[in-house]
Structure formats: structure tokens, C-alpha cells
Design a protein around this nucleic acid. Structure first.
Length: 429
RNA sequence: GUGAGCGUAGCUCAAUGGUAGAGCAUUGGACUGUGGAUCCAAGGGUUGGGGGUUCAAAUCCCCUCGCUCACCCCA
């Protein structure tokens, strides 16, 4: 028989128990933060009809996994969670409470070429507020990005903020070229610098005079300068209002800033846009989002404004791995292993049942090897305590071994229960 | 889509044109009440695949597939 190819499909991965525990930790922190802000969780299908997905992503549409089902219907795997949300809101708008604040943590798929921190199947966490054009909503999105990253232990990051309307205004003032082409060139500033952007613009057919004006706009380092450059533009007024809300929320000034070079790649953004970057390690942005007032309306046939962000959990996890940011006290798979001998199996099960009933996380050794192997099993799995159920059980006692210290003591079943609860279950009195 | 680097046992890697090996993992034993152990033994390979050069190829050349990284773009 031919040997099987022991590989996962390109850009897709398995998660081992140890990784999974760290991933779940990140998801649970995010979940807590979202729910603390009054957001509710929803889910949508992995597969959407092609007509839902098509025409929403511009150039990136070619990265959608697209295929025909058995009856020849055109479908695709969702590329992000925003377009499915738009479909969801249009479909269920009579059942939702607006402004609708929802979060979602699900897989998306992109037929991209994988590289560091980038996969073909990955999780995204999206938080969005649908049904209001108030900038309070945009401010809350920025607030939640800040909270989430702080709660995960990030001490240094920058939420870059700009407004698509200012790029449009700049484009109007140039009076030449394509707005999207302009945005692309500006967005590269971080990587290629001012001179690089100038060359990029010229090669995209912009005149030297236009390039000068663009470079000048990218040199704006504050909203005050933006106001004197753009005048009383709507985009400037929006950012001023947004920043006043952000200040009111108490986010320290070094975590966010106006950034005229931020453009964002996707077609559907219409107002304020945000993106978070970390300096170390170099991994690109870890969140990205903005206001997209036209998208849902394109499904609903009526104007439904919306704003939100995607948190790049995969990159967030990658950064946390690289910087060793996970707390050491991520819970072990169980707090106690019940070890046993051939003639104490029933007693072991009774003990396990009792501990489980009192809320303790218990692993009963489910093999048939000796005590040596059972201790090794607990050590390998990171279980801190081993309750050895041997002859002493006849007197109602077990031997409890602490694997970290190596200490062992005999105790009655009652005190065992109290001991473990006192150690690991802080709300126990 | 473009470019570069790399493909040897399940994993990490040796073997510089001359007999394909080690560690870890797996299985059995020493060993039926005390932990990531030690010792012994075993299994495991068309050296990614195909072609070429050579007396001789894991090693050199060509093609192909795969992986990684970077670019494009993006989380």
C-alpha cells in the first residue's frame, strides 16, 4: 500500500493540546472584554452563496475559495466576517435591536500564499456596531481594541486612525489619477518612505506636482495640521469629534494617533479607519477596520451604517508566543490525577466521582500501567497533584503527591477535597 | 502571481562522489506502590518524485512537486 502523505493542506494547521490551551486563553479574554462592553455573540455559516461574496472585496476577490455545489450552485468560503454580517443584518433586521453590537470569533479562508503569521485558514475576531452613524460607535470600537490588547498584556502598540473621506478630499484636490491607486501608494509609506511613495506615485501616472501635494499631506502630524491643510472638510470634523470621545474614554495618548498615511486595502470603507501595529516583532497589523456605511445597504436596500474592527487573533497569538506573553498559570488539563492499582479501581472511580461532584477538575488514569507510569503521565500532562488510591483507602485515606515539590502526605478523603479546593478554587471558603 | 533558500526515519538533524546513521518518539523487556529516568532489544528509509552525468549519487546537473521566507496584498 502506498504511504499516506502525512501533511495538512497548505496554509492550514493542526493545534496540539498545549497550543490549544494558549489559544483558548486568548479567545476567552477577548470574549470577556467584548461582553463587558455589551456586545453579543453570533455565528454565521462557513459557506455563503457566491452572489453574497462577489463584488465586495475588489482586487482581493480572487483569493476567495470558490466552487460549485452538487447542484451546480456557485458558493464560496467566507473571506471575512464583515460581509457575512452585512448579509445577516439585512436578513434578520426585524429581529435585531439597534444599534446592534455583535462579536464573532470564527474561521475564515483565503487562498493566499502563506508566510509568517499568515494562513489560508484562520480565526478572526470581529466586533461591529450596526445601525448608527454616530461617531460614538467608532470611538467605542477604538476603546475595545485598546481594552482587549491591554487585557492580553500588550504594553506597547499604536492604533493608527485616519478617515477615508480625507483621502477622497485629497484626491479631489489633486484632480487627477485614481483614488484607489492613490490610497495604495500612500499606504506604503511605512515600508518605502517618502521618496519611495513619490516614485510609486510617479510610476502610477501621477504628476510631480500631485506627488508633492500628497507628500505634504502625509507629513501632517496632528489634527490641527490636518485642519489647516484640508480646511473645514467633513473628514476633519469627524476625526476631531472622534478624538474628543477617545480622550474622554481615557485612552493614554501614546496608544493612538492620527495617521494620514493609513489607507486600508478593502473597497468598502467610507469613514474613519483604524489599524493597530506593534513594533516588535515585525508582523504587520494586528487589527484593522473602519466605518463601512454602504455595505449593508447593498444587501438591505436601505441605508444601514456600520463600523467595526477585526482583531487578527492569529497574529496576536504569534506576537504573544514570540514575546512569551502568556501567563504561566494557564489552567492545567486537570488539577489532580487519580492513580490506582489493579485492586483499587472501583475505589478510584468513587473518589473521582466525589471530587467531580464538588467541582474539582479530575483526571482518572485510564490506562493499565503501574504507578511509575501514572506519575510520569501526570508530569507529562502538567497535572500538579496525584492522589494515589492504594491499600490505605481501606482506612478512608489516600496519598497525595505534589509533583512540583515532591512532597507526599496521607490524608482522609474529606481533607483531600478541602485541600485541593483551597489550593485551586479561590472562591472556596 | 514574482523572487530566494531548503527537502535524508513519525520529529530534530548527521553522513563534504565510495557500506544511509544518531538523538528523541514508538514497541517489548530489566520493573505489579512512587515522576519527564537508566540499561538492553526491536521495528521504522525507493534520501520528496522523475530523468541525466559517473565504475559509483543523499551529495553534481536538469525537470517537477512540496515546504519556508520575502515581495504583491492582507489579519
Amino acid at each position: 500500500m502506498a504511504k499516506k502523505d502525512l501533511r495538512t493542506y497548505r496554509g492550514m494547521r493542526d493545534f496540539l493540546p498545549g497550543q490549544m490551551r494558549r489559544r483558548d486563553y486568548v479567545f476567552s479574554v477577548l470574549r470577556e472584554v467584548f461582553e463587558a462592553h455589551g456586545f453579543e455573540k453570533i455565528e454565521t455559516p462557513a459557506i455563503e452563496l457566491w452572489e453574497v461574496l462577489s463584488g465586495k472585496y475588489g482586487e482581493e476577490e480572487k483569493l476567495i475559495y470558490r466552487f460549485k455545489d452538487r447542484k451546480g450552485r456557485e458558493v464560496g468560503l467566507r473571506y471575512d466576517l464583515t460581509v457575512p454580517l452585512a448579509r445577516f443584518v439585512a436578513q434578520h433586521r426585524s429581529e435585531l435591536v439597534f444599534p446592534f453590537k455583535r462579536y464573532q470569533m470564527e474561521r475564515v479562508w483565503r487562498a493566499d500564499r502563506p508566510q509568517k503569521g499568515r494562513f489560508r485558514e484562520f480565526y478572526q475576531c470581529d466586533v461591529d456596531i450596526v445601525g448608527t452613524s454616530s461617531l460614538l460607535a467608532d470611538a467605542e470600537i477604538v476603546f475595545i481594541i485598546y481594552h482587549a490588547l491591554r487585557r492580553l498584556g500588550f504594553e506597547k502598540f499604536l492604533i493608527r486612525i485616519n478617515n477615508r473621506k480625507l483621502i477622497a478630499a485629497l484626491h479631489r484636490r489633486l484632480g487627477e489619477g485614481d483614488e484607489f491607486s492613490l490610497a495604495r501608494a500612500m499606504d506604503k509609506f511605512d515600508k518605502i518612505g517618502a521618496q519611495g511613495v513619490r516614485e510609486e506615485l510617479l510610476s502610477r501616472g501621477f504628476s510631480p506636482r500631485a506627488a508633492e501635494l500628497v507628500l505634504k499631506s502625509m507629513g501632517l502630524s496632528s489634527l490641527e495640521q490636518a485642519r489647516s491643510f484640508f480646511g473645514d472638510e467633513e473628514g476633519v470634523k469627524e476625526l476631531e469629534e472622534l478624538f474628543s470621545y477617545i480622550r474622554a474614554m481615557g485612552i493614554p495618548g501614546d496608544f493612538y494617533s492620527y495617521d494620514p498615511t493609513l489607507a486600508r486595502g478593502l473597497d468598502y470603507y467610507t469613514g474613519p479607519i483604524f489599524e493597530t501595529v506593534v513594533e516588535e516583532p515585525k508582523i504587520g497589523s494586528i487589527t484593522g477596520g473602519g466605518r463601512y456605511d454602504g455595505l449593508i445597504g447593498s444587501f438591505a436596500g436601505m441605508d444601514i451604517p456600520a463600523t467595526g474592527t477585526s482583531l487578527g487573533v492569529e497574529r496576536i497569538i504569534a506576537v504573544m508566543e514570540e514575546l512569551d506573553m502568556f501567563p504561566s498559570e494557564i489552567p492545567p488539563p486537570a488539577h489532580v490525577l487519580i492513580a490506582h492499582f489493579p485492586d483499587t479501581k472501583e475505589e478510584a472511580l468513587k473518589l473521582a466521582s466525589r471530587l467531580l461532584a464538588s467541582g474539582i477538575r479530575v483526571d482518572v488514569y485510564s490506562g493499565d500501567k503501574g504507578l511509575r507510569a501514572q506519575l510520569g503521565y501526570a508530569a507529562d500532562k502538567g497535572i500538579p497533584l496525584v492522589a494515589i488510591v492504594g491499600e490505605e483507602i481501606k482506612k478512608g485515606e489516600v496519598s497525595l503527591k505534589d509533583l512540583k515539590s515532591g512532597n507526599q502526605q496521607r490524608m482522609g478523603v474529606d481533607s483531600l477535597e478541602k485541600y485541593i479546593k483551597g489550593l485551586y478554587y479561590s472562591d472556596f471558603k
